[in-house]
């Protein structure tokens, strides 16, 4: 395999500033997994293979509370559904690449990589090997993510429970939630999802999360449609 070095370097350079944000996230993921009772090796293996922070944090909390495996898997799918959107958005830009190259790009298509790649691939003549640009984005992030998870897990094992490090998990989700609310329909989605999940928190199998999330998605989509209808009527 011939790697187009300029493309790889361009990706790595674009990703560099985001590594600073990913590192503490990885440390906290490792530490909170140990606080929830997972072995350091296991959470490191998880970061290496799953490579999806929010889904991992949710899974860690569920495993810690003794949830069934299918509940963990359903929650993983729910949280990672957004990646289907990334995949669909980038697919036209990489149609000419081999199946193996597209699979490699898929493995690395995390939030940060998608955000940066969608900016670059939007231009028609970027002169990039898109596979190697995505590898340049994804590999440094993967190494940082796996490495900081391992460090966090081994350091976290030394932290006494009185430090309440398990609280790091809701804090991380909060830090992800707030920037994800970009407009009014997004706020409607969050309020509906959060409110319903809170009301249904007593339901078994993490069903409160599922119902709340689906209702929130529907409410956000409906709010966007309503907003559009109003805008069209306002113009008429």
């Amino acid at each position: 395999m011939q790697v187009h070095r300029a493309s790889f370097t361009a990706g790595a350079r674009d990703m560099a500033p985001l590594l600073l944000g990913a590192a503490p996230f990885g440390l906290i993921t490792g530490a909170s997994a140990v606080a929830a009772g997972m072995a350091p090796f296991d959470v490191t293996f998880m970061s290496m293979t799953v490579f999806a922070g929010a889904a991992q944090l949710a899974a860690i909390a569920l495993i810690g509370s003794g949830a069934a495996a299918w509940v963990v898997l359903l929650t993983t799918v729910m949280i990672n559904l957004r990646h289907v959107m990334y995949s669909a958005a980038l697919a036209p830009s990489v149609r000419s690449y081999s199946l193996g190259a597209r699979a490699a790009m898929g493995a690395l298509l995390v939030d940060h990589a998608y955000a940066l790649a969608s900016l670059r691939f939007g231009r028609s003549d970027d002169g990039l090997n898109r596979r190697d640009y995505l590898l340049g984005l994804g590999l440094p992030l993967w190494v940082t993510w796996t490495g900081t998870t391992a460090v966090g897990a081994y350091l976290g094992a030394q932290v006494p429970p009185a430090w309440q490090l398990d609280f790091a998990v809701p804090l991380m989700f909060l830090a992800l939630l707030i920037p994800s609310i970009r407009n009014r329909p997004g706020l409607v989605a969050a309020l509906t999802g959060g409110g319903l999940a809170l009301l249904l928190a007593g339901l078994p199998y993490n069903l409160g999360l599922m119902v709340g999330a689906l209702a929130g998605i529907a409410a956000g989509t409906a709010a966007e449609s309503a907003g559009r209808a109003l805008a069209i009527r306002g113009r008429a």
Partner: peptide, 30 residues
């Protein structure tokens, strides 16, 4: 991509996955 189709409504709905899901995790946890 050749075999899959994402209807426009579903594509729009997917943009609301992050706020809805994350809020549904955060609210009960807090």
């Amino acid at each position: 991509a050749e075999r899959l189709r994402l209807p426009p409504l579903l594509r729009r709905a997917l943009t609301y996955v992050p706020p809805a899901v994350l809020a549904a995790i955060v609210a009960p946890a807090l």
